[in-house]
């Protein structure tokens, strides 16, 4: 089995998948802690559906570089969702449900009507749940992912203290002169970018899992913001790597395997958390 693994690791596409997997896992878990605590996770969920819709439009238009449409649409939706979610208290949830389900249905419809592909179900399935074969990642994908991840991590480190302050007590932060709205906007935009990035790996339906699970697992065990953030990043990377390796060896779908690893880690952390008390 180990031989088989080492064999596989020679292939560039396996290396690409591992690199991209680690980067996405890292970024999504960093931002995940704030997202969960700020109750922004619903935005992540809504956005992944929007990204799916945008992807459908892009593939209908036969664009070679789908990012050109998917990225701006998702970022703009993130900003809009944040606004509606904050202002109109009751309508916020409904608006998000509307947008996300609408985008999902529209995307599927568009793909169904206009698609020239012979394997429509396969296409839809891979957009929703991630590609089964990781052959889809090119070197350019890896470089783009690397650059964006570097930016996300840098932004997170630079604004770490502000993000903590705004997450813990937004009104205090605002009262003492921190521009909370800007940081909320920054968070929303980072989520959007991560979601678009992660779509290739785990597919749009499973992204939320990647964002939420490491944070929740880590919160079972640790009591300070810093330790929760660090542990969730480590855990997320471990789950992504083991998920990818297992999927190679066992031939299971990548996205689902990574998420399964995250779920497993969550259960273990919950148990350990209970015994620690």
């Amino acid at each position: 089995m180990l031989d088989k693994l080492i064999d596989y690791l020679q292939y560039p596409f396996v290396q690409y998948a591992l690199i991209v997997g680690v980067l996405i896992a890292l970024c999504s878990s960093l931002i995940g802690v704030s997202l969960v605590l700020k109750r922004f996770s619903f935005i992540g969920d809504g956005l992944s559906h929007v990204a799916f819709g945008a992807m459908a439009i892009a593939s209908v238009l036969n664009l070679t570089n789908q990012m050109i449409i998917v990225m701006p649409v998702t970022v703009v939706s993130a900003i809009l969702l944040l606004r509606t979610g904050r202002n109109a208290k009751i309508k916020g949830d409904a608006a998000i449900a509307m947008i996300s389900v609408g985008a999902l249905a529209l995307g599927y419809l568009l793909m169904n009507i206009f698609s020239t592909s012979s394997n429509l179900t396969g296409d839809v399935c891979s957009t929703l749940f991630g590609s089964t074969s990781m052959l889809t990642l090119t070197l350019t994908d890896v470089i783009v992912c690397g650059v964006i991840s570097a930016i996300v991590v840098a932004l997170f480190l630079i604004f770490y203290n502000k993000i903590f302050a705004v997450t813990f007590d937004e009104s205090f932060a605002t009262a003492v002169g921190t521009r909370s709205n800007r940081y909320n906007l920054l968070l929303a935009m980072i989520i959007a970018v991560i979601i678009v990035l992660a779509m290739n790996l785990v597919g749009s339906l499973l992204i939320s899992a990647l964002i939420i699970f490491p944070a929740l697992s880590s919160m079972r065990l640790f009591k300070s913001f810093r330790s929760v953030t660090i542990f969730s990043a480590v855990l997320s990377v471990i789950c992504a790597v083991s998920g990818i390796i297992i999927s190679i060896l066992a031939g299971t779908p990548v996205g689902a395997t990574i998420v399964a690893a995250d779920v497993g880690a969550f259960l273990i952390c919950t148990l350990v958390g209970i015994f620690k008390k």
Binding site: K162, F168, S171, F172, A175, V176, G177, S224, R226, V228
Partner: peptide, 30 residues
């Protein structure tokens, strides 16, 4: 605004929010 200190009457902190005392006090220096 950056010269103001403020103690709110109520701070609604979510259950399970992981934050140590030190982290919170330091956030006053932001």
């Amino acid at each position: 605004h950056t010269e103001i200190g403020y103690l709110p009457q109520q701070t609604v902190v979510q259950k399970d929010f992981p934050a140590s005392v030190r982290e919170i006090v330091l956030s006053g220096c932001q």
